[in-house]
């Protein structure tokens, strides 16, 4: 127990250090005790919102990945495998191409969110059989829809000739640079809600991994638990895509990195994946904007470049693949 306490303390320490670094380091170092007007604007309306968006997105993706790998009983599952992101991308790109502005400045995020939720709903309906969701059906429905939507997106992109359309691809690659406060409350609401449900049902998720029969005998209804967790994952992923497009790697591999250290008890794994995901995206964004100023590199690229080698190193070093 004592080592667990040290572990939690350590995690909080690292996370705070990452937050502080992301806020005060960057293309220029900010001294919080000597700030002029411009520096304040940079800190409060440029850096702070993007740090918060990075944390929200990373948290959502890390936690969703851990939960999904559990409910689908598949170590290769990630939040994007359900087609949620391709649905969001298709909706957002259509909005960009058609020049829609129904929701004002929120148009693109709202369209992405709607696209994600509708896709999640379709996957849910397709994965539903005899009063519940079935892991294999969900997975295959997600993969199938994902192919369909990606193809439609490519079709849309290749048919269009306007600049705006080609720029739609930029959105798809994920962008944190334009983050601002206005959209944050909604993002926070869905991510926090989804995370709360995941933590609340973490014990049931442990049971689900063991199989439906054991879940029953441990006193949980597999169908109900899977449904609740699926909705939680859907909300978190949709919010994350709406906040900043698609960021790869975190949803798939951060839960595995957490598993190397903590084992597969979801009561610890889900929060640890969330925190690790948030911290990793923060660091990646910090590197992306500081490396070659004034140019910025997309955070999604950096995430995989620093994350993947570390994951491979762990894979080599640690003996247990405790899934």
């Amino acid at each position: 127990m004592n080592s667990m306490k040290t572990g939690i303390f350590f995690i909080i320490l690292v996370f705070s250090a990452v937050l502080a670094a992301s806020l005060f380091l960057g293309p220029s170092v900010i001294n919080p005790f000597a700030m002029d007007g411009t520096t304040k604007v940079i800190l409060f309306s440029i850096r702070a919102p993007r740090v918060v968006v990075a944390v929200l997105m990373g948290t959502a993706l890390g936690a969703s990945g851990a939960v999904l790998q559990g409910i689908l009983r598949n170590p290769l599952a990630d939040p994007y495998i359900l087609g949620i992101s391709s649905g969001a991308a298709l909706a957002a790109a259509s909005g960009i191409v058609l020049g829609l502005s129904v929701f004002g400045t929120f148009t693109i995020p709202v369209l992405a969110f709607i696209g994600a939720i509708v896709t999640g709903g379709i996957v849910g309906i397709l994965g539903w059989r005899r009063g519940g969701l079935w892991p294999e059906r969900l997975l295959l429905a997600g993969v199938g829809l994902s192919f369909l939507f990606s193809a439609l997106l490519m079709l849309l992109l290749s048919l269009s000739t306007t600049e705006g359309l080609r720029r739609a691809t930029l959105w798809i690659f994920g962008d944190l640079s334009m983050s601002d406060w206005s959209i944050m409350p909604y993002g926070l609401l869905f991510v926090a809600g989804g995370l709360a449900v995941s933590l609340w049902r973490a014990k049931a998720l442990n049971a689900l991994i063991l199989g439906d029969e054991l879940t029953h005998s441990l006193g949980f209804s597999p169908h109900r638990e899977r449904f609740l967790l699926f909705v939680a994952v859907g909300l978190m992923t949709a919010a994350s895509v709406a906040l900043g497009g698609m960021i790869g790697f975190i949803g798939l591999l951060v839960p595995h990195i957490a598993r190397f250290f903590l084992g597969s008890d979801n009561r610890f794994l889900v929060p640890a994946s969330a925190v690790l995901g948030g911290a990793l995206l923060c660091v990646a964004d910090l590197i992306g904007r500081s490396l070659i100023p004034p140019m910025e590199l997309p955070a999604g690229i950096i995430t995989a470049i620093i994350g993947a080698p570390y994951f491979l190193y762990l894979l080599r070093k640690k003996n247990v693949l405790s899934f």
């Binding site: 293309p27 440029i46 930029l170 904007r289 004034p294 910025e296």
Partner: peptide, 10 residues
């Protein structure tokens, strides 16, 4: 280049 907002303010 994807240009930094911070750089514009600085």
């Amino acid at each position: 280049p994807k240009y930094s907002l911070e750089a514009i303010l600085r």
